[in-house]
Measured scan of single mutants.
Amino acid sequence: TTLHFDLDGKKLQYTGVSEEIARLVEELKRRGVDLKEIVRILEELLK
């Protein structure tokens, strides 16, 4: 799965993300978590 974000005018793309992580990101968005925080979490998970 590939995730795309537009953060402060920067286009971020994460490829090869598992379905689980993609679902987690969608859930965080639904809960109103700040996009910067979501990206920070995502980068930690993908290390």
Rank of each mutant, 00 (worst) to 15 (best):
K11C: 06
E44T: 09
L45G: 05
T1M: 15
G9L: 02
E27V: 08
L28W: 09
K29Y: 14
E43D: 12
L12A: 04
G9V: 01
G16D: 09
R30G: 15
V25K: 00
L24R: 15
L24I: 14
V25P: 00
R30K: 13
L24Q: 15
Y14S: 00
L35V: 14
K10Y: 11
V25C: 03
L46N: 04
Y14A: 01
Q13D: 09
I21Y: 09
V33N: 06
L12I: 13
I38H: 00
G16P: 03
I38A: 02
R31W: 07
R30H: 13
V39E: 01
V17S: 01
F5A: 01
K29S: 13
Q13I: 12
D6Q: 05
K29N: 11
D6M: 07
H4S: 12
E19W: 12
V39P: 01
I41D: 03
L42V: 10
R40E: 08
T2R: 02
R40M: 14
E37W: 04
V39M: 05
K10S: 12
E19R: 08
R40C: 03
K36W: 10
R30C: 06
K29Q: 13
G32D: 12
E43T: 06
L45T: 11
L12S: 05
D6G: 01
V25G: 01
T1Y: 15
K36G: 11
V25Y: 05
I41H: 08
E26Y: 09
V17D: 01
L45E: 13
G16S: 06
K47P: 09
D6W: 09
T1F: 15
A22Q: 10
L12R: 02
I41R: 09
E44N: 10
H4P: 02
L42R: 00
Q13P: 02
Q13R: 05
K10E: 13
E26L: 14
E27C: 05
V39D: 00
E44Y: 09
T2D: 14
Q13C: 06
E43K: 03
K29C: 12
Q13H: 10
V39N: 02
D6N: 06
L24A: 14
E19N: 11
E37R: 06
L35T: 15
G9N: 05
D34R: 05
D34Y: 07
E44W: 07
L35Q: 10
K10G: 08
T15H: 13
V25S: 03
K47E: 09
A22S: 13
D6P: 00
K11N: 12
Y14D: 00
E20R: 08
K11D: 13
R40H: 11
L46A: 03
L46S: 04
I21P: 02
A22G: 15
R23C: 12
E27Y: 05
G16I: 04
E44H: 12
V39S: 02
K36Q: 13
I21M: 10
